[in-house]
Simulated assay, not measured.
Amino acid sequence: MKARIKWVEDTLMVAESGSGHAVVMDGPPDFGGRNLGARPMEMLLMGLGGCTQFDVVHILRKGRHQVTRCEVELAAERAETDPKVFTRIHIHFILAGPGLSEKAVERAVKLSAETYCSASLMLGKVAEITHDFELVPYNQ
């Protein structure tokens, strides 16, 4: 896996993935940024959310469960002093699907957290990561 980050000006950067996708990152105004993109640490948190969501949906579908909605909300706390690593991360899944059971979702979340999500397993070395989920009504 590869990535390339090009500095544009001040704290503005354009990141390009090895697969050819680009995202803009920027710093806050108090560090010279113009707030034109996500912060690098926000990207890390969003990457964790995307990684675990990918797993959960894949696991559920592989088990022949229909998933019509899956959102992941993340809340993180960081250390007060440098390096300001994540110290706690809470991941909340919101799912819907016809006949989707709590047992199936609980299993998928656990498998993602403990076996498949590389981002969770890496960040879990420095941060306490917790999970919960809610099933919301399936609307056709």
Score class of each variant (00 low, 15 high):
residue 39 R to A: 11
residue 53 Q to I: 12
residue 63 G to S: 15
residue 67 V to C: 10
residue 91 I to Y: 06
residue 70 C to G: 07
residue 42 E to F: 14
residue 89 I to W: 02
residue 49 G to L: 06
residue 108 A to P: 10
residue 107 R to P: 01
residue 68 T to H: 12
residue 55 D to Q: 05
residue 95 L to A: 11
residue 61 R to M: 12
residue 102 E to K: 14
residue 101 S to L: 06
residue 118 S to R: 13
residue 117 C to H: 09
residue 103 K to T: 15
residue 71 E to P: 10
residue 52 T to Q: 03
residue 54 F to N: 10
residue 47 G to E: 06
residue 60 L to Y: 00
residue 103 K to P: 10
residue 57 V to I: 08
residue 75 A to L: 14
residue 96 A to K: 02
residue 64 R to Q: 01
residue 84 K to P: 00
residue 99 G to K: 08
residue 55 D to C: 12
residue 59 I to M: 05
residue 88 R to N: 12
residue 86 F to P: 05
residue 97 G to L: 07
residue 109 V to H: 02
residue 120 S to K: 00
residue 61 R to A: 07
residue 105 V to Q: 03
residue 48 L to H: 05
residue 67 V to L: 07
residue 97 G to D: 09
residue 43 M to C: 08
residue 97 G to C: 05
residue 74 L to V: 03
residue 47 G to S: 14
residue 74 L to H: 11
residue 117 C to F: 01
residue 96 A to F: 10
residue 85 V to S: 00
residue 95 L to C: 08
residue 47 G to P: 08
residue 56 V to E: 00
residue 49 G to R: 07
residue 120 S to C: 12
residue 52 T to E: 04
residue 48 L to A: 01
residue 74 L to P: 03
residue 100 L to G: 03
residue 72 V to C: 07
residue 40 P to C: 04
residue 58 H to C: 14
residue 50 G to H: 05
residue 97 G to A: 06
residue 62 K to Y: 05
residue 51 C to T: 09
residue 40 P to T: 09
residue 55 D to K: 02
residue 112 S to C: 01
residue 103 K to H: 15
residue 78 R to Y: 04
residue 45 L to K: 06
residue 107 R to C: 11
residue 117 C to L: 06
residue 122 M to F: 13
residue 118 S to C: 10
residue 106 E to C: 12
residue 88 R to F: 08
residue 110 K to A: 14
residue 39 R to P: 01
residue 100 L to M: 10
residue 78 R to F: 05
residue 48 L to Y: 04
residue 66 Q to E: 14
residue 74 L to Q: 05
residue 94 I to V: 12
residue 83 P to H: 06
residue 50 G to Y: 12
residue 120 S to D: 03
residue 78 R to A: 07
residue 110 K to D: 10
residue 110 K to S: 15
residue 47 G to C: 10
residue 108 A to H: 04
residue 85 V to I: 04
residue 103 K to Y: 14
residue 57 V to D: 05
residue 82 D to I: 14
residue 76 A to D: 13
residue 82 D to Y: 14
residue 84 K to D: 01
residue 59 I to T: 00
residue 42 E to Q: 15
residue 42 E to G: 06
residue 108 A to T: 06
residue 124 G to D: 09
residue 51 C to Q: 01
residue 99 G to T: 07
residue 77 E to C: 06
residue 90 H to Y: 11
residue 51 C to E: 00
residue 43 M to W: 04
residue 55 D to S: 01
residue 54 F to E: 02
residue 80 E to A: 15
residue 86 F to Y: 08
residue 69 R to T: 11
residue 117 C to G: 03
residue 59 I to P: 03
residue 70 C to P: 10
residue 72 V to P: 02
residue 108 A to K: 04
residue 94 I to P: 00
residue 72 V to N: 03
residue 76 A to Q: 00
residue 95 L to Y: 05
residue 114 E to H: 08
residue 97 G to R: 00
residue 109 V to T: 02
residue 118 S to Y: 01
residue 50 G to K: 13
